[in-house]
Structures are given as structure tokens and as C-alpha cells.
Amino acid sequence: MIINIWLNGRQLTREIEADLLLIDFLRNNGCYSVKRGCETSNCGLCSVLLEDKPVLSCSTLAARADGKHVYTLEGLQPQAEEFGSFMADQGAEQCGFCSPGLVISVLAMEKELNNPSDEEIKEYLSGSLCRCSGYMSQLRAIKLYLDRKGAQEYERN
């Protein structure tokens, strides 16, 4: 079948097998930030934005993205760098293999939740597993990042 996808802002037309998963479509098209950590929708590593909502690309058919906008970190480099620098300042990335999926989810959370509490942050991101960090450094980075955004807005007003 033929699908049209807006991938990171660029329109792509591709012939695919109907059972192709979105993660494989994305990696086949150069989006190597998208990682596979399991086959059971448990780890969150493969998270991407589909029409601005975070989805697990390992359990989404590429065909489902037909006519839609998909963003991976390849198309979100300034945002990834901005939040990522807070991660880097905490040493929170460690092996880094789960970082792209987490960054996608944090960017989505930022749009969805206003002033989230620690518990709300943990709840929102609970589908993003990490085996290196123990999560504390990520929480520190996320809070500092969100605080900074708040401070910037405060200054603007």
C-alpha cells in the first residue's frame, strides 16, 4: 500500500507492507533516534509524536500515520537540545538509550500539564522505563526545565 506521511515536517510518499510498524518505517527512513526496547508496549523507548500526541511506534502501524504528522527527535532538535541540556547537567542520560523516548514524552507532557506536581510528572511518564538512572536525576532535570520555562514566562509578562 502507499502512504503519505508528514515526517518531521516533510511530506513522504512510500510504498509499504500493510503490517509495517511505525517504528520500522521511521528507522527505515533515517529516524534512528527511535529505539526499540521491548515487543510488549512496556518500555516507552519508541515514543514519537503522532499529531502532537505521544504514541508507542512499536505498537502503531505505519498505515495508521497515513495523512498525519509524525515527529521524532530528528525533527525536534532545538527542543531536544533545550530539555536535553538539563538532563546532561544532571548526568541523567547515563547510557542514553531511553533518552529519546523520554524527551518526546516530556515535550508532550509540557504541553498537556500545567504546573505538574512530582506525582503528576511520575504518573505521566510512568510508561518510560530507565534501567540506569533510578529516575531521580530525570525528575530533577524535568523540574528545573519546567521551572525555567515558568521563570521565562514570568519575565515576559
Binding site: Y32, T72, E74, E81, E93, V103
Partner: peptide
């Protein structure tokens, strides 16, 4: 390597 990792470099 932090920034390469958090920005999803291959």
C-alpha cells in the same frame, strides 16, 4: 557524549 545521546544521534 551527553548531548549526542539526549538529542537521539545515531
Amino acid at each position: 557524549d551527553a548531548m549526542a545521546l539526549v538529542t537521539g544521534k545515531p
